[in-house]
């Protein structure tokens, strides 16, 4: 039994168009197309339409979807990306680093007070040196050290004056007793200890600062290198394209119309 194809059998025409058809039916369509110009023209036009569809492509996008178990996410990921600091500009990171260093240095500042409860020597925030002021000045380790030293000398002098005046009030012109000398020695010892402590803290902070700066410098250098490389690559690529473009233009313009 032979298969006969008719012009209005569009389902079979589509099957023929896409090649999803058995051999016998294909032969029947071929036979018909050899005799029917309208159907042959339609098949050609639909084939060309299919070719046109090949021109339409979706954009080339980055997807990278992943299923991640909630339990595997660190708590910080719930609220912000894990590498949130990567979005912070370098200048802001530098400012934050300066703030941390300034805060550390201000902690290292010495505070010596004398009052009715006696003499107290401690490190901490100095009321005369607010953070804003510290931030406004450029960081200078030597200057800080000198400032601490000056403060210590000034305090020592002030203490000596106060002790002398107290002695004068209580004992008149009598020579200083051994108890006074012990107090002075004690104060001097406290001051020396405080100074040593400050110097150790300063040294530790300098080491940290140097290490942080080195790390930051290396990271910046790597970033700069990466950016320079990418620019160089992009530039080469652009150059190549322009060269291709010029070649194309030359070829097109030299082709006789």
């Amino acid at each position: 039994m032979s298969i006969k194809f008719t012009c209005d059998d569009k389902a079979t025409l589509v099957a023929y168009l896409y090649g999803e058809i058995d051999a016998a039916t294909r032969q029947a369509v071929d036979d018909h197309l050899a005799q029917c110009a309208a159907c042959a023209s339609e098949v050609t036009a639909l084939g060309e339409t299919r070719s046109g569809l090949g021109l339409w492509a979706p954009p080339d996008v980055e997807l990278d979807f992943q299923i991640v178990k909630k339990s595997e996410l660190p708590p910080s990921n719930v609220l912000r990306p894990a590498r949130w600091w990567k979005d912070v500009p370098a200048w802001a990171q530098a400012a934050a680093a300066v703030l941390v260093v300034a805060a550390g240095l201000s902690i290292a500042n010495l505070q010596v007070t004398s009052g009715p409860n006696g003499l107290s020597v401690r490190t901490g925030w100095m009321s005369q040196q607010p953070v804003a002021a510290a931030l406004s000045e450029p960081f200078d380790g030597a200057a800080v050290e000198q400032r601490v030293e000056r403060a210590l000398v000034s305090l020592e002098q002030q203490l000596r004056t106060e002790i002398r005046s107290v002695n004068a009030e209580t004992t008149g012109t009598a020579p200083r007793g051994t108890a006074d000398e012990a107090t002075v020695r004690r104060v001097q010892q406290l001051l020396a200890e405080a100074e040593q402590r400050n110097q150790r803290q300063l040294a530790a902070r300098f080491v940290e600062l140097t290490r942080d700066l080195n790390l930051q410098r290396r990271a910046d250098l790597m970033n700069v290198k990466r950016v320079v490389n990418s620019f160089a690559g992009a530039y080469d690529e652009r150059l190549m394209r322009q060269s291709q473009m010029i070649n194309n233009v030359i070829r097109v313009s030299s082709t006789p119309q």
């Binding site: 060309e48 070719s51 569809l53 090949g54 021109l55």
Partner: peptide
């Protein structure tokens, strides 16, 4: 005005 294509698709 589109009738001919060169994307290689066809029956």
């Amino acid at each position: 005005g589109m009738t001919k294509f060169e994307s290689g698709k066809g029956p």
